[in-house]
């Protein structure tokens, strides 16, 4: 293997990881940016998406690619349920920031237990996957990698279009910037919150399908990813979506490099160390501002 091959290898796995992280992180960033909500049930949404695909294809016998629309539908429902189970009752109250953490944590416990009850704790294979790949020099680029990157890019473009060019998207961004001004325009905050929850649910569910396709589907799938996604959001600056996407890929390539050069064991602690350093240097993340929330 030449140096070039190594670099290529790192880039291929880094971009695959980055695509999955970005899809997941955007939902989290959006929730924070619009409603100041730290969603500790994000990992549950990820796991729910993965299992929706497993269920639709493995249990109901659909074709492999139907896993994705199945995950999207279930993710959408999960977002709605999460809103009515938690945020609906506390948004706007003084202790929202803290209590929403606890409430979503409660939901996370429930979801994980239900998944274990329904699907057992044993890992299952994610059917949304392609075999084989092509060689770029000495480096194998699996078709699965291309699939993941394509899905991630399409999703990011779709979200960008939704936020920039639609009435709903503008209202979401407006609410994130000033809820009071948005209300003056006649925008009902609750409707926006529900929409954002649905978007976050769908994105997280899709990321769950992608992530489990490179590993396995298990009830704790979301927890590990959630932590990495948290780090990404914090380093980027909570709520900043373009920054979040950039940092997703940057940290993923870094993670791939650490895994390649040292071992998988050190990847997470080292990433964390880097994140702490960045935060000590810039307490609101690389792209975050002290007050202004950006979407």
């Amino acid at each position: 293997m030449t140096v070039l091959d190594s670099v290529l290898q790192i880039l291929v796995s880094g971009i695959t990881l980055g695509g999955m992280y970005a899809v997941s992180a955007i939902g989290l960033a959006l929730l924070w940016g619009v409603m100041g909500m730290l969603n500790m049930a994000h990992g549950s949404l990820i796991a729910i998406g993965a299992y929706a695909s497993v269920f639709a294809v493995g249990y109901l016998g659909g074709t492999w690619y139907l896993g994705l629309p199945a995950a999207m539908i279930v993710g959408c429902l999960a977002g709605v349920l999460l809103y009515f189970a938690t945020a609906r009752w506390m948004v706007g109250s003084g202790q929202f920031e803290m209590n929403i953490i606890i409430a979503t944590v409660g939901v996370a416990i429930v979801v994980k237990s239900l998944l274990i009850i329904g699907f057992t704790g044993y890992p299952q294979r994610q059917p949304f996957a392609l075999e084989g790949g092509i060689y770029l020099g000495n480096v194998l680029v699996p078709y699965q990698t291309m699939l993941i990157v394509c899905v991630a890019i399409i999703l990011m473009m779709a979200l960008s279009w939704l936020l920039k060019a639609t009435r709903m998207g503008r209202a979401i961004r407006a609410t994130a910037q000033s809820q009071k001004a948005a209300a003056l325009m006649g925008i009902p905050a609750e409707r926006i919150y529900l929409q954002v929850m649905v978007i976050a649910g769908v994105l997280a569910a899709i990321s769950g399908v992608l992530i489990s396709s490179t590993a396995n589907t298990s009830p704790s799938l979301g927890e590990v990813t959630m932590l990495k996604v948290f780090i990404i959001c914090v380093v980027a600056g909570l709520g900043n979506i373009p920054g979040t996407i950039l940092i997703s890929f940057a940290l993923a390539v870094l993670e791939a490099a650490i895994q390649y050069a040292l071992s998988a064991k050190w990847a997470f602690p080292l990433l964390l160390g880097i994140a702490v350093m960045i935060l000590i240097w810039r307490p609101y993340g690389l792209f975050g501002a002290a007050r202004i929330r950006k979407v």
């Binding site: 961004r173 407006a174 910037q177 009071k180 001004a181 003056l184």
Partner: peptide, 11 residues
């Protein structure tokens, strides 16, 4: 039209 404008700064 509120005091202090309350425009959306990043729109």
């Amino acid at each position: 039209i509120p005091q202090g404008d309350l425009i959306f700064p990043d729109l």
